[in-house]
Design a protein around this nucleic acid. Structure first.
Length: 155
DNA sequence: GCCAACGTTGGC
DNA sequence: GCCAACGTTGGC
């Protein structure tokens, strides 16, 4: 089982929005980056888990956990001309963008802010992509060691 | 709101 | 294939 980190702007879709639909699957749409696309399409598996990260907000950080419930499949929003994620260059016969469905698991007992995570940049979290300079990926894998360390920070 | 860092586009 | 211009991300 692989752990991931997935970013979302709470003003657009926050962990509380996901938690408001307990047990229901939610499509994680709108990812428009090729590296993230490749992970969605090729590597994410049902049963994998992901940290829910709030970005572009007052206190960026990890808020909770969710589960990946589908393999990657084509993101319908790329073909929807009314969607902000519409991509006129994507060919339905050969979709460019993929997504997975996710499901709410739980909130962490308290959020782990980016500031807190940065304290360990040169220690246990060395090499964590989230903390690397200029990293803008909205989805990234989290190593087993990093995952365990983050979960230990929780309480 | 600012701006650094990055990814994409498109002319050549 | 190079690279300048542009748009986006996201912390601060």
């Amino acid at each position: 089982m692989q752990y991931w980190l997935m970013k979302s702007e709470p003003k657009v879709f926050g962990l509380d929005d996901l938690a408001a639909r307990p047990g229901q699957r939610e499509p994680w749409d709108g990812v428009r980056n090729y590296q993230a696309r490749n992970w969605l399409r090729d590597d994410m598996k049902p049963g994998d888990r992901a940290f829910f990260y709030h970005s572009n907000c007052e206190v960026p950080g990890i808020l909770g956990l969710m589960e990946i419930v589908t393999p990657g499949y084509p993101d319908p929003s790329q073909f929807d001309a009314t969607s902000r994620y519409f991509d006129p260059l994507s060919d339905p016969g050969r979709p460019r963008w993929y997504l997975v469905d996710v499901r709410y698991l739980r909130h962490l007992c308290h959020p782990i802010s980016l500031t807190t995570l940065r304290r360990y940049t040169d220690g246990p979290l060395a090499g964590f992509r989230l903390l690397q300079k200029g990293s803008r990926l909205s989805i990234m894998p989290v190593s087993e060691d990093h995952c365990q360390f983050i979960l230990d920070l929780e309480c």
